[in-house]
Amino acid sequence: MYFNKDTIICGKNVVLVPYKEEHVLKYHEWMKSEELQILTASEPLTLEEEYTMQKSWLMDENKCTFIILDKSKYELTGNEIEAMIGDTNLFFANADDRLCAEAEIMIAEKWARGKKCGWEAILLMFMYGIDTLGVKQFIVKISYINTISINMFKNMGFVELSRSNVFQEITFSKIVDEMWINWIKTNLGNFTIKVG
């Protein structure tokens, strides 16, 4: 999404930056992992395909992608590539109606897992979606075997909508309301969204 190309979202432990060409090589290395392919229902791409995908996603007004940085590592090194730990996305199925977005989160670096980085990153993405993009409902699709993500989204108030035995995944939904927004803000504490 070209709209978010200069946006930086800063939380307590993570920083979200737009997915740019310089991130592709490390992202491509992550996606060679069979475990991540299974958990994210992704197919491996060639490096050339990954660069093409990054460019197309940047220009696609229905895909909003951020790379997740470990804030302490980023502040220490000033190097986004070294600080990369995962990514988070919003997808809009209907170009004319941005009220509903499918959300995704991936913590690729094993050392960054179990530290609530994914929790914080997706809450930051939800706030960006609500405040900046006007999202009123979030959908997540999670593999049957990804119990960590299933439990995380249930703890965030998501409810099960359906199950697909064909795709081996559960679809969860959360309607945005003031109570949930306040809950997110309480859980996040101080955060900033900088554009430009």
Rank of each mutant, 00 (worst) to 15 (best):
K73Q: 11
T46F: 03
W57S: 09
Q137K: 11
F153I: 02
K115N: 14
K55V: 00
L76A: 15
G129N: 00
I122V: 15
T46E: 02
T65E: 00
I81S: 01
A112E: 09
F153A: 05
S164D: 09
S164T: 03
F66W: 00
K174P: 10
Q168E: 14
V176L: 14
I122G: 03
V166F: 13
S42A: 07
D97W: 10
T65N: 01
I122F: 01
K110V: 15
I139E: 02
I150K: 07
E49H: 00
T132P: 00
I122T: 11
I67K: 06
E43V: 14
D87V: 07
S162D: 07
V140W: 04
L161S: 10
A103V: 12
A95L: 04
L76H: 12
S162H: 04
L99F: 04
S42C: 02
N62T: 15
M152D: 08
D131A: 13
L45A: 12
A95Y: 03
K63V: 10
Q54E: 08
I68Y: 09
E104W: 05
T88Q: 07
M84S: 00
Q37E: 10
K71P: 03
Y51S: 01
D177R: 04
W119C: 11
I175C: 12
A93F: 12
K174E: 10
C117F: 15
A95V: 07
K136W: 09
K55W: 01
T52P: 00
L58T: 00
K55D: 01
Y128H: 03
M127L: 09
K136A: 15
M156R: 08
L36G: 01
I81C: 05
S72N: 10
D96Q: 09
A41E: 08
S164E: 06
M125Y: 12
K136E: 15
L45H: 10
L133Q: 06
E160S: 02
T88A: 04
D60G: 05
R113C: 08
N155M: 13
W57K: 11
N151P: 05
Y144L: 11
I139Y: 00
C117P: 10
A108Q: 05
E160R: 06
Y128S: 02
C117L: 15
E75D: 13
M125L: 15
K116D: 14
T132L: 09
S42G: 03
A121F: 13
Q54M: 04
E178F: 08
E35K: 08
F158E: 03
C64G: 01
V159K: 12
V140N: 07
K63S: 07
Y144A: 02
E43I: 11
L99N: 11
A103Y: 08
R163N: 02
L36D: 08
M84T: 02
N165I: 12
M156E: 12
M127D: 03
D177G: 01
